[in-house]
Design a protein around this nucleic acid. Structure first.
Lengths: 325, 325
DNA sequence: TTACACTATGAAATGCATACCAGAGCAAGC
DNA sequence: GCTTGCTCTGGTATGCATTTCATAGTGTAA
């Protein structure tokens, strides 16, 4: 395969001129432009982008760290990121880490190694102290509330969303309220737990540790809910379920355990996935694809402006009332 | 940021020696190795991977072309690809094209431009004639049956799977059988249509054009099924639905249209997604994540062997009998 | 003792395109 | 006529790490 030098020779011009044609620089005469284009066509020239990346110092690529692709939460987020990336003609590196700490660090090393221009971390196991130093090499954005660091963030307020959901249940008459956490998100988990206790206390009720379930991620996990409910002396009358897939699983398996929704157990899901609409699940719409799109938009802006100034965006959520409360 | 030259200077050695340390070449004395490592640490050296890619001519990156991430079919496929890529320490470029022809070609240009080492095409709108020439620049693999081309392929037999499903329905007593197609896959669609007519004819029945539905991709699309059924003079008693999400939608909305599954209408889904297990939907398990894993494994082998010999793999599917037939 | 293999190291070539600088030619303005 | 500014072009430095080649020293087998 030929390089720019051979094209220059074939077209009878200098490499500078070829480069100008390649980059659509205005100061090239029509005759030479034609000659270069003809040579490119004839010799089947293809620019070696690695050389371009090397000299320009950027790669037009952003990496996305996510634990599992195979989950609607991350999929929607990714969809938003990808749509926005497409607009700006940027490439995405997909880094499925399975919450493996070393894999996460490898991606940050890629930033240091100039393989990528920025990193979006949708969820993580590495600590912020480990991540922050890498912001010296390019913008890093997390999909969670991060403050006072050289890291950007796009998120919705987990605390407030939980508060909203619990208040809604309370107003509907529920006093015994339980909730699930996925293991997707550690920092958000803590906020949710805090919101759970705070809000109930504020309303004059009480949170209970035994009404908290951890590790509920997908549809299949829902199978454990009813055995757990049966095992309790006093049961919650409403469940806040962090993820519509799990909520759907609960809803769909309820009859076979002799539960009616919402009469015996009320349910609020999260994410407003298509399945919640189909099944009429009351849910909190956190607009994942918008979070993704904003995440990319912000990091893109930082890359193009060569800004190191971190940005932060708190996106709105809304409760969508359907039929499970 | 320092480069290898400055490290060499700081450590009092040549760049060759630094490079040897970096690449764990054996012929370096312990003393110099220590000196280099110390210099790297002290000066916070990071290798510029773009230079490495340039000189080595490979990037350890494979691109995946897929129309939408936001669909369980591609998500599962991607999961399989990503897991296998992780094993081989390869990066994945995610290229969401929305079936846009130009976007697909852009990815192939990236192969030509040496930005990536290979391409996996999960679904496409470009023609094979357009794709094939790019195999000169690196391995290209399609997730469909491709023959007599310089393109690799990993697939399951769409024709046979349809035949299997239809025969199963026939044996259960169904004579009026309809089916949906997603717009996901053009080449597979044709095979399925052929299988539909062939199989029914072979069994002594008849396929009907008005029992074929196109453009059914996700859960929401299922909403159109019952109005369509109502509009028919003679209705199918069984539906083959290419995608468990659509099948789930049909199953879940059946009661509100006064249909019982499988009494009034039998359903077979595709993909064996978690939702089909949860809802007891009879389905064809096409083992998407295995297809993905094999796809990556094959392309990886071709990259490392610098083989241009295309490979082809036909993976098994199996019918999983549950409760909707 | 000679020859050969192996270890250890550095200089220089290589992969490739872009960007800056210098310079030529030409036109418009004073 | 001279200056200024724009268009067009080429040479060369630059970005950075790997690899090949050459050289020298050391150990070992013949």
């Amino acid at each position: 395969m030929p390089n720019i030098k051979q094209i220059a020779k074939a077209a009878g011009v200098s490499v500078s001129t070829v480069s100008r044609v390649l980059n659509k620089h205005p100061y090239v005469s029509e005759a030479k432009r034609k000659a270069v284009e003809e040579a490119i066509e004839r010799l089947q020239y293809a620019r070696n982008m690695n050389a371009v990346h090397l000299i320009k110092g950027i790669t037009q690529t952003v990496a996305v760290i996510l634990p599992h692709i195979n989950h609607p939460y991350f999929m929607r987020l990714m969809e938003g990121i990808a749509s926005e990336a497409l607009k700006h003609n940027y490439q995405l590196m997909l880094c499925q880490t399975g919450y493996n700490h070393d894999e996460e660090m490898k991606v940050l090393e890629m930033l240091k190694n100039k393989q990528i221009d920025g990193v979006i971390i949708t969820s993580r196991s590495a600590s912020l102290d480990q991540i922050e130093p890498y912001s010296a090499y390019g913008p890093i954005l997390l999909c969670e509330d991060v403050k006072d660091r050289r890291l950007s963030s796009v998120y919705y307020d987990h605390y407030l969303s939980f508060q909203t959901a619990i208040t809604f249940l309370w107003e509907k008459g529920h006093r015994n309220i339980g909730f699930t956490l996925n293991r997707l998100n550690n920092s958000s988990g803590r906020k949710r737990i805090r919101a759970y206790y705070d809000t109930l206390q504020m309303l004059g009720g009480n949170g209970r540790a035994e009404w908290m379930l951890d590790g509920y991620r997908d549809m299949k996990d829902s199978a454990a809910i009813f055995p757990w409910l049966h095992s309790l002396d006093e049961r919650p009358t409403a469940l806040l379920i962090t993820g519509d897939e799990v909520a759907a699983g609960v809803l769909l398996t309820a009859p076979q355990y002799g539960f009616q929704v919402p009469e015996d157990i009320a349910i609020i899901g999260f994410d407003n996935q298509p399945i919640s609409e189909l099944l009429g699940i009351t849910t909190i719409d956190i607009q994942l694809s918008i979070i993704g799109a904003r995440a990319f938009a912000i990091i893109y802006k930082q890359i193009t402006n060569r800004t190191v100034e971190p940005a932060s965006e708190n996106l709105q959520f809304k409760l969508i009332e359907r039929k499970t409360v």
